[in-house]
């Protein structure tokens, strides 16, 4: 073969890449969240119940207890199926896997992997949660083998076209609401404390939420969401509670109904594993690239 360096070269230009934007699943990446409402870090649990309390004190105490009830694990893996249903009853499904490492001191770490729809299968998110600064998030696109650091999320938009917003999925710290105890009332065989929570920070899509928490284990049974005009917008119900490892109560089914649109979205959780051994090394950019 000729040694081309000895020849007179005529530079001719190749057909070139016409730039275009690769779709980075904007719909996913800005909405991904931690589902930490179910997995969240432990917060101080005020057990001091002996004193007579104001409605505000009692509201805060129940909110903290409910939050503590879903904390106190190390590692967790779980599978999730989301079913979206429109007013005509047409269904659409999303399936994903999630693993989380709880770390009350440095913030939780999570990885989400999508299995369906097929056009996003293999797409994965890595989230490093922080208490006092925005979360760090990375997106892995398997077709391009690209890891991209992405901005932290928007709160009120729809999560993957569902009736859940980002805000619904993340539930910020207990301290970011003003909680008021409204009443105790029967819920099934249990007694529930009904707590109204008004967001303190701007940016919420809601004027207030009302939650039903049983006084036995502080499990959440229902949340009603009111829009900025104080209209009852959505209702989330929790059911099929199971206890894992003798202490971790989790609802297997969550159902969100939008009263304005008639649409609903169900979350079905399965294969909870609280015994899984995870470490910080499972939540790095390098491990994100290995995800299947």
């Amino acid at each position: 073969m000729a040694n081309c360096s000895q020849q007179q070269l005529h530079f001719v230009i190749s057909p070139i890449p016409i730039p275009r934007v690769v779709n980075e699943l904007q719909h996913l990446k800005n909405k991904i969240c931690v589902f930490l409402v179910f997995l969240a870090a432990a917060l101080p649990f005020n057990t001091d119940k002996a004193y007579a309390q104001s409605a505000t004190e009692k509201g805060l105490q129940v909110a903290k207890a409910a939050r503590a009830a879903v904390s106190g694990f190390d590692g967790l893996t779980v599978e999730l199926e989301m079913t979206l249903r429109n007013r005509q009853g047409n269904e659409s499904r999303r399936a994903l896997r999630l693993k989380t490492l709880e770390s009350p001191s440095s913030g939780d770490k999570s990885i989400f992997v999508f299995d369906s729809p097929k056009d996003v299968a293999g797409t994965a998110f890595l989230v490093h949660s922080h208490k006092n600064k925005p979360d760090d998030q990375w997106l892995y696109l398997p077709a391009l083998k690209r890891v991209k650091r992405i901005r932290s999320s928007n709160r009120s938009g729809s999560f993957m076209g569902s009736e859940f917003s980002y805000e619904d999925m993340t539930t910020p710290a207990v301290e970011k609401f003003k909680h008021t105890w409204l009443r105790d009332e029967a819920c099934g065989n249990l007694t529930c404390a009904v707590i109204e929570s008004v967001p303190i920070e701007k940016g919420s899509g809601y004027s207030r939420q009302v939650g039903w928490f049983d006084t036995a284990s502080y499990r959440t049974w229902k949340t009603e969401y009111f829009d900025r005009r104080n209209k009852h917008l959505k209702t989330l119900t929790y059911s099929d509670y199971n206890r894992y490892g003798g202490k971790h109560w989790r609802a297997a089914k969550l159902s969100m109904v939008n009263h304005l649109t008639g649409k609903s979205s169900n979350l079905d959780w399965s294969n909870f594993d609280f015994g899984v051994k995870l470490s910080d090394r499972d939540f790095t950019q390098t491990s994100l690239r290995r995800i299947r």
Partner: peptide, 12 residues
């Protein structure tokens, strides 16, 4: 659009 079909339009 962030709808069920993840519809998007891109102009470059």
């Amino acid at each position: 659009l962030n709808d069920v079909g993840d519809t998007s339009f891109t102009v470059s």
